[in-house]
């Protein structure tokens, strides 16, 4: 464990808490893409299958349970409890266009052709594009509540910090995983234009308005 990975995991937990608080407090999931939340739940389900078979550390297991539980709770709140506030019209990204390519790619490019490894690889590829329905929805609505933009900033920062963690691990432990690094770079790049808008607008108290 290093400071970059710890900061990244905390940013990740922070993003999930912001989202759950936003939905719970406002009793609304307006502006949130349910499809992205379904993809995130799928990412954790396919990545943390080893929760019961491989014990890495208490921290590792607690965080996995936290991510699985929170993503399940978010999907439940969006599609069941506050389904009336779910903006189905603007959440129109075709997620099969993400699921199929990630599945095919994970069958072609992986470290080892076993069920667990291919599912882990699928989850890594899927996570890198899971935010697309959310970014697509923000671009369609042309704006995002500031709480949603804080959520996106924390979520984008998590994988950006993981990139630093991988640099650190390569230098210090000469450990690296090209699949995770490649997907992490793609994932972080997808947030770049949002990061720019967030820093130039939201931090100055303006609303996040995308150029129409």
């Amino acid at each position: 464990m290093n400071i970059f990975r710890l900061a990244g995991d905390l940013a990740h937990v922070f993003a999930i808490i912001i989202l759950l608080l936003k939905i719970w407090k406002t009793r609304s999931c307006a502006g949130i893409s349910g499809k992205s939340q379904i993809l995130f739940a799928l990412v954790y389900l396919t990545r943390y299958l080893d929760l019961f078979t491989t014990y890495v550390s208490l921290y590792n297991s607690v965080m996995k349970v936290l991510f699985l539980a929170s993503s399940g709770a978010t999907v439940y709140l969006m599609y069941v409890k506050f389904r009336a506030t779910y903006d189905r019209n603007h959440d129109s990204f075709r997620i099969e266009f993400l699921l199929v390519p990630c599945l095919l790619l994970s069958l072609l490019i992986n470290h080892e052709f076993t069920v667990m490894e291919v599912l882990w690889t699928f989850s890594i590829y899927l996570e890198s594009v899971a935010i697309l329905p959310q970014l697509f929805m923000v671009s369609k609505t042309g704006e995002a509540e500031s709480i949603t933009s804080h959520y996106l900033f924390a979520l984008g920062s998590y994988r950006a910090l993981y990139l630093l963690n991988w640099v650190y691990r390569y230098i210090v432990e000469s450990h690296y995983d090209l699949i995770a690094i490649f997907a992490g770079i793609v994932q972080t790049i997808l947030y770049c234009d949002f990061f720019y808008l967030y820093i130039t607008k939201v931090l100055k108290g303006k609303k996040l308005q995308l150029p129409a």
Binding site: R5, D50, T54, S57, N60, F67, E112, E117, W120
Partner: peptide, 10 residues
């Protein structure tokens, strides 16, 4: 790598 390499990252 041989057996399912232990993933220590989240």
């Amino acid at each position: 790598p041989g057996e399912y390499s232990k993933k220590d990252e989240l």
